[in-house]
Amino acid sequence: MRYVFDIEGGNFDKAGQASSEIKKVMKQLGIEPAIIKRTVIALYEAEVNIVAHAYRGTLDAVVFEDRIVLRLCDVGPGIEDIAKAKEKGYSTASPAVREMGFGAGMGLYNMEKNADVLRISSEVGQGTVVEIVNYLNNRHS
């Protein structure tokens, strides 16, 4: 089953809407609460990253019986050094964004912690593609 959402860069009012929809779907599928929690935390971070940094993006979520694949593509500044961006506390967020409670530099770190598979590819000046795969059965987590 496939769900596609547009994510608007710079609009924090709507940050989290896609995550909430996916959360609802996972609850309806009766997925283990701990797995829902991990997935939503990782997805929310990815969604907020687009809102905070990119111009626009999409979430393409595909739910399989055994796994959920979340692909977030954005048009934006891209990430220069992905390995560094994954470090705990690393952030390029502006003070204004930090003021709003975002950009503490835990984004990619949290994403990695809560995703079974995390693939990030990016081209500076073009955009970023984040792919999160979480397995939906207990034995994987």
Binding site: S20, V40, Y44
Partner: peptide, 8 residues
């Protein structure tokens, strides 16, 4: 609580 669930 919706927000708490997102770990906000």
């Amino acid at each position: 609580l919706e927000r708490v669930e997102n770990d906000e």
